[in-house]
């Protein structure tokens, strides 16, 4: 039963990622694109966790942690750039 639920969930999260890509391409403004990227990395974390459950291993959690940290820093840097025109003042 877990296997079926797992496949349905992977399909849903993949569809979510595709919708994010749609917003990433369509825009219309820069903050929309940054927001789409932000959501995209959170979905990538979800997919990594699901992959870990599918394969029955914990190895991939480290990469999920790294993506979480790097994604947050990236979002903040991009938002700062949009607001001030430079990342480091």
């Amino acid at each position: 039963m877990i296997t079926i639920a797992l496949y349905i969930t992977i399909a849903m999260v993949t569809l979510a990622a595709l919708l994010n890509v749609y917003r990433l391409i369509k825009g219309p403004d820069a903050p929309d694109r940054v927001l789409a990227l932000d959501t995209l990395y959170i979905n990538a974390i979800a997919l990594i966790i699901l992959l870990g459950i599918t394969l029955g291993t914990r190895m991939y959690l480290e990469s999920a942690l790294l993506i979480a940290v790097m994604g947050f820093v990236g979002t903040v840097a991009m938002a700062k750039y949009l607001k001030r025109g430079s990342v480091i003042e």
Binding site: V13, L15, L19, T39
Partner: peptide, 21 residues
């Protein structure tokens, strides 16, 4: 419980993306 939580999580992720789109 695991199957329920997986489906709930997938549904919420999808709803968030639908909202974004």
């Amino acid at each position: 419980v695991i199957a329920f939580l997986l489906l709930l999580g997938g549904a919420f992720t999808l709803i968030g993306a639908i909202g974004l789109a």
